[in-house]
């Protein structure tokens, strides 16, 4: 049976890096971890297609936001050049500095592909969950 330990470790590190970059507000660097055709499904909102569309959404809504983000990987599967990561996330969000902090809990599915030796996010689905359930 193929051992995917090194790929899993690499992907876990990517998840941590993505989290750190988002907390830092470094949107450009976080999106560089995504494929050009990255797809993002956020709850019932229309699907965002392409890195640029996702960046535009973040810029337009969260340009001045302050994020806190933590996560837990519930399941990580690697199959060849594909990886699927089931995660839970806890997020705090201040739309602007000085405003009230909002708390969110999410479930997120990340799909990654290894291209030319580099794992890239190709698709993500994130859904809000009741805080009490987490």
């Amino acid at each position: 049976m193929e051992d995917h330990a090194s790929a899993k470790a690499e992907i876990e590190a990517l998840m941590t890096r993505r989290c750190e970059l988002l907390v830092k507000g470094d949107l450009v660097a976080s999106m560089q971890m995504c494929a050009e055709e990255y797809e993002l499904v956020l709850g019932d909102a229309p699907t965002l297609i392409g890195r640029e569309a996702v960046m535009e959404m973040y810029r337009s809504i969260y340009a001045e936001a302050v994020f806190g983000l933590s996560f837990k990987i519930e399941d990580l599967r690697v199959c060849g050049t594909l990886a699927v990561v089931f995660m839970r996330e806890w997020m705090t969000l201040q739309p602007h500095r000085g405003t009230e902090i909002e708390h969110f809990a999410l479930r997120r599915l990340n799909v990654l592909e290894c291209r030319n030796g580099t794992w890239l996010f190709v698709r993500a689905m994130a859904h809000l969950q009741p805080l009490v359930e987490l």
Binding site: V41, F86, M125
Partner: peptide, 10 residues
Amino acid sequence: GVGHFQATQL
């Protein structure tokens, strides 16, 4: 729907 066929392995 779960978003990716690979996820159905679960």
